[in-house]
Design a protein around this nucleic acid. Structure first.
Length: 158
DNA sequence: GCCAACGTTGGC
DNA sequence: GCCAACGTTGGC
């Protein structure tokens, strides 16, 4: 079972949108970065969990947990000339870009902000989200990092 | 809005 | 293959 972090700009598609989506499920398409593509194609497996992260916003933060409900498959938006994600170099025979489908498992009881995560650099170790100049929209999380971050979320009220 | 980081493109 | 130019990401 693998763990990941998926970034999304809430202005474009945030937790509110995922919550409102049919079946609280969406397809994670339009990723046009090779490293992220490799994770989508080869890394994310059915049943894997991922943090849902809000980026490019006033308070960047992990806000939810999603589950992979369909592992990597070709991102067909690359084949569509009208799509903003169109890429003439990607063909059905030789797809260049991949996507996964995800479903909201639950919202976090509170947002765990990037600022807070930075305070725990030592505990988190080498965490892709905290690397300098990190721009990856799909990144791996170790089991230890996953457990630690979840431990920051308050449990039952009492 | 600014700027650092960094991936991509294209000329040579 | 090098590298400058350029575009995008994303935090602040």
């Amino acid at each position: 079972m693998g763990y990941w972090l998926l970034k999304s700009e809430p202005v474009a598609f945030g937790l509110v949108d995922l919550t409102a989506a049919p079946n609280q499920t969406t397809t994670w398409e339009g990723v046009r970065n090779y490293q992220a593509r490799n994770f989508l194609r080869d890394g994310l497996q059915l049943g894997d969990q991922a943090f849902f992260y809000h980026s490019s916003t006033i308070r960047p933060a992990i806000v939810g947990i999603v589950e992979v409900v369909r592992a990597g498959y070709p991102d067909e938006t690359a084949f569509d000339p009208i799509s903003p994600y169109y890429d003439a170099a990607s063909t059905p025979d030789q797809p260049r870009w991949y996507r996964v489908d995800i479903r909201l498992q639950r919202s976090l009881r509170r947002a765990i902000t990037l600022a807070e995560l930075k305070q725990h650099r030592d505990a988190l170790g080498d965490f892709a989200l905290l690397r300098r100049g990190n721009r990856l929209s799909v990144l791996p999380v170790t089991a230890a990092q996953w457990a630690f971050i979840l431990s920051l979320e308050p449990t039952a009220p009492f």
